[in-house]
Design a protein around this nucleic acid. Structure first.
Length: 243
DNA sequence: CTGGGGAAGGGGCCC
DNA sequence: GGGGCCCCTTCCCCA
């Protein structure tokens, strides 16, 4: 009960070499769950976004305080809200508002452990290594100045689309956005004629071609291409004990 | 209601 | 330290 079985697809048998991006191995390693031979076991307690609307991942959604959808609000060069971030760089570290070296122990970097990404984002794991850098614009904390600077870019939004004026925190986000204007779709599905502007969207699309999709309901054994679909399914009542 | 696509955000790792 | 890229996740919308 309360457990999702996540089946691993076999990317190598469906994806040609010219689509290394479609390989998906990292996908499976990214889940903070126990890895089994044939799949991964989900527990709802490990899905903060399912039950905890206040989880960091939820808070950091696009529906933040900044109205990015409004072109009038994205003239980042004049974002009076973050004067210290008017350049392409975050505020200088000399700002006492953001620089709080409370502790000197260098936090672990989880070397090459992408699986830890979600954990780090959703849960403060080790109290002994509490983040020491605080964002002056929001309650977020980070364990390194670099991470904090990166985060602050989400407030300063230094990358502005020359076409529509929408602003983004990262250059590659802007590039992806520009594709929505140009129609460029560099990521093609090897199984059909579809092409995508975003690699992650192609990856999600590839699931639709999979015989056994990654996300399976532990109650009815239905599989879904997206965790969000499984969540919907669960919330709809198939798995009352988990909904 | 479900499945899927489009778009975007964010943190981590590598160079 | 910064940029680029990776990957996952989420939200919205539509068929």
């Amino acid at each position: 009960l309360g457990t999702y079985f996540v089946f691993l697809s076999h990317p190598s048998d469906t994806l040609p070499d010219r689509y290394p991006l479609a390989e998906l191995p990292a996908v499976t390693s990214n889940f903070p769950v126990t890895c089994l031979t044939t799949g991964l076991v989900w527990d709802v307690s490990l899905l903060p976004s399912l039950h905890d609307p206040t989880s960091p991942s939820t808070l950091s959604s696009s529906q933040g305080p900044l109205d990015l959808s409004s072109p009038s609000s994205v003239s980042c060069s004049s974002s009076g809200e973050e004067d210290e971030g008017r350049t392409s760089d975050p505020p200088s570290p000399d700002s006492s508002d953001t620089y709080h070296p409370q502790q000197t122990s260098r936090p672990r970097r989880n070397s090459k452990n992408r699986a830890g990404q979600r954990e780090d984002k959703s849960e403060a794991t080790v109290p002994a290594t509490r983040p020491a850098f605080f964002c002056k614009h929001c309650p977020k904390e980070y364990n390194s100045l670099g991470a904090l600077k990166m985060h602050i870019r989400s407030h300063t939004l230094p990358c502005v689309c020359p076409t529509c004026g929408k602003a983004f925190s990262r250059p590659w986000l802007l590039r992806g956005h520009i594709r929505t204007h140009t129609g460029e779709r560099p990521f093609s599905c090897p199984h059909c004629n579809r092409a995508f502007a975003d690699r992650s969207n192609l990856r999600a699309h590839l699931q639709t071609h999979a015989d056994v999709k990654k996300y399976q309901c532990s109650t009815c054994s239905r599989t879904f291409s997206r965790m969000s679909l499984l969540q919907k399914h669960s919330a709809a009542g198939c798995c009352p004990s988990t909904a």
